[in-house]
Amino acid sequence: MGRFPEMNELHRTGGKLFDADDNLVPASDSIIFPDVKCFTADGKEHDLVQILRGKVTCVTVFMRDFARPMLKSWEEHIDEVKQEYPQLQVVQLSFVEGVAYRLIKGWMISSMKKRIQPDKHDRIHMCFGSSDEFRKALHVKNRLVAYIFLVDSQGRMRWQAVGYPLPHEARFMRKSVGKVGAGNDKGRGEKRAIVSLSSSKT
C-alpha cells in the first residue's frame, strides 16, 4: 500500500481499520511475533525475540508521526493494566525508515527519550530500516496508524487492536492480560485466521 492509499484509508476510517476481537487467538492458532533488530533507550542493540521471551508483553507499534496521538490514547489504559498486573512488560516499537536516519541514529534515540517520561524509558525500542518484512508477517499494510498487540510468554501474538481504543477494547485488553499471564487463555477452539490489518470498513 502506497502513501496516497494509506492517507485515503486514514481519512476514511479515522485510523480504526477494524474493531478488535473480543476473543484471544488460541495458542495453537497463533503466529510467532516477528523478530527485528532494535535499539533500546541506552543505545544498545537487541533482538526483539530476546526481549519478549518469557514475559507477557503489550507491544505498541508505530511507523509514522500520524500514529502518535493514537498511541498516546492507549497509554492511559496500558498504564492502568500495568498497575494491576506489574508483571506485564510494555514495549513501544517504532520504525525509522530511510538510509539518512541511520546516520543520526544517536540523535533519534535521544530525541525519542525526551518525548517520553523517564520512568517509561525502558519501553523504548527503535528499529532503523525497512518495516516491509515485519509488516508482511503481521499483515500490517497501513503505516499511518498505531497497532497494539498482546504477546504471550512464548512469543505468540494472541490479540491485536488498531487506531484509537474503543471502550470494549480497553476492557478486553485488561481482562486478557490476566488470562494470558495465568495460562487460562485457551480462547476459542475453532481455527481463526489472523485479521488483515488493512481496512475492512467501507
Rank of each mutant, 00 (worst) to 15 (best):
172 F>G: 00
148 I>S: 04
71 L>I: 04
138 L>S: 03
56 V>F: 11
121 H>P: 11
1 M>H: 12
139 H>I: 11
121 H>G: 05
76 E>F: 15
171 R>Q: 14
40 T>L: 06
149 F>M: 02
21 D>P: 04
183 G>L: 13
157 M>F: 09
155 G>N: 04
123 R>S: 07
28 S>D: 08
44 K>F: 06
70 M>Y: 07
85 Y>T: 02
76 E>Y: 15
54 G>R: 05
145 V>L: 13
104 I>M: 13
62 F>E: 01
181 G>S: 03
59 V>Q: 02
192 R>A: 12
111 S>I: 08
93 L>R: 00
97 E>A: 09
42 D>M: 05
101 Y>C: 08
77 H>Y: 15
94 S>L: 05
135 R>Q: 14
162 V>E: 01
130 S>N: 12
184 N>M: 06
13 T>D: 02
3 R>Q: 07
19 D>H: 02
115 R>Y: 10
184 N>C: 09
33 F>D: 01
102 R>V: 05
198 S>E: 10
68 R>E: 13
153 S>V: 10
34 P>F: 14
129 G>S: 05
77 H>D: 15
3 R>T: 04
58 C>R: 00
75 E>V: 11
143 R>M: 13
144 L>P: 04
154 Q>W: 08
95 F>M: 06
142 N>R: 04
59 V>T: 01
20 A>P: 03
51 I>Y: 02
165 P>K: 03
182 A>V: 02
44 K>T: 09
